[in-house]
Computed example of a mutant assay.
Amino acid sequence: MRSHKLKTALLIGAGTALATALAPASASASAASPAPSPAAQSRSGVIVLDCFANPQVRPSTYLIACGDGNNGLVSLHWSQWGPSSAVARGLDMVNDCQPYCAAGKFHSYPVTVRLDRVQPWPGHPKQRDYTEMHLSYTADTPPQTAREVTYRIVD
């Protein structure tokens, strides 16, 4: 029983640490100097929502595994951010969860990211967001992961 509690605490701590590291800059921005709205930052007027439903434009990091923090994109460099799609290159950081996730190691996989399927952002008239993310691994892939992966970004 005690071992299970320790493993659970370690898992929660590891997930929290990764989520904090990958949290968008807007989540920790100072209230003293308000940042321009994402729509104002994006010439296309399109945003992508992070795990906390915060609008982002050209994020340098993006958490994929919102629940446990065991998968996220880092070092994103955007070559395109347009009205119908966005494209970036970066690294997919994936926890191998061996022997379990709290004790696992993160491994990086070069990836091309494409955002598309632009839709109106519910509850925010005049604002649109990308609702689908496509990952294309450019070298190795994480174990049991296809070279091409698609995620739905929930509004």
Score class of each variant (00 low, 15 high):
P143V: 08
D68G: 04
D96H: 07
A35D: 05
T20P: 00
S75N: 13
L11F: 12
A146H: 04
A39Q: 08
I64A: 07
Y137A: 09
S33P: 02
L11M: 09
C101M: 03
A19K: 15
S3P: 00
T141S: 06
K5A: 15
P55R: 10
S42K: 01
G123D: 02
H124T: 11
G15F: 08
C97E: 11
A139L: 12
D96S: 14
I47P: 06
A102H: 00
K105G: 02
A40P: 02
P120A: 08
G15N: 09
I64W: 00
P143S: 08
P143K: 08
P38Q: 11
D68I: 12
T8W: 00
A14I: 07
E148R: 12
A23R: 10
V118F: 04
S30F: 02
A31D: 11
P99A: 08
G104L: 01
D68C: 10
R128H: 15
S75K: 11
W78F: 05
N95C: 03
L73V: 11
T131W: 02
L91W: 02
W81D: 14
S75P: 04
V149M: 00
A103Y: 03
P122R: 11
D129H: 15
A103E: 08
M1F: 04
S85W: 03
Q41A: 15
T20S: 10
V87Y: 01
S60K: 09
A21L: 13
V74F: 04
K5S: 09
A35G: 09
W78P: 14
D140R: 07
L22Q: 14
L22H: 13
Y100N: 09
P36F: 03
M1N: 05
P36H: 05
K7G: 04
A103I: 01
P120Q: 11
R2T: 13
F52N: 07
T141D: 02
A39T: 14
I153S: 01
A86V: 06
P142I: 00
L63I: 10
P55D: 08
G90V: 07
R147W: 03
N54F: 06
S60Q: 05
L18I: 15
S30V: 02
L73M: 13
V154A: 15
H4Q: 09
H134E: 13
P120G: 06
L22I: 06
E148Y: 12
P34A: 10
G104E: 05
A17D: 12
L135T: 14
P110H: 12
A146N: 13
L22V: 08
P125F: 02
N71F: 05
K5E: 09
A40D: 13
R147F: 00
A65C: 15
Q98D: 09
A21E: 14
Q144S: 09
Q56P: 01
S28T: 15
A23Q: 10
C101T: 10
R117C: 07
N70H: 10
H4P: 01
H4W: 12
N70G: 11
N70W: 04
P34D: 07
L49A: 12
G15K: 12
K5M: 10
T16H: 11
A86G: 14
A103V: 01
V48M: 04
D92P: 01
M133C: 14
R117N: 15
M93G: 03
Q41V: 13
A17V: 12
P142D: 06
V74E: 10
L11K: 10
P59W: 00
G67P: 00
L18Y: 05
S3K: 11
A21W: 07
D155Q: 08
D50H: 07
G104C: 01
R89D: 13
A21P: 05
G13A: 15
I64C: 04
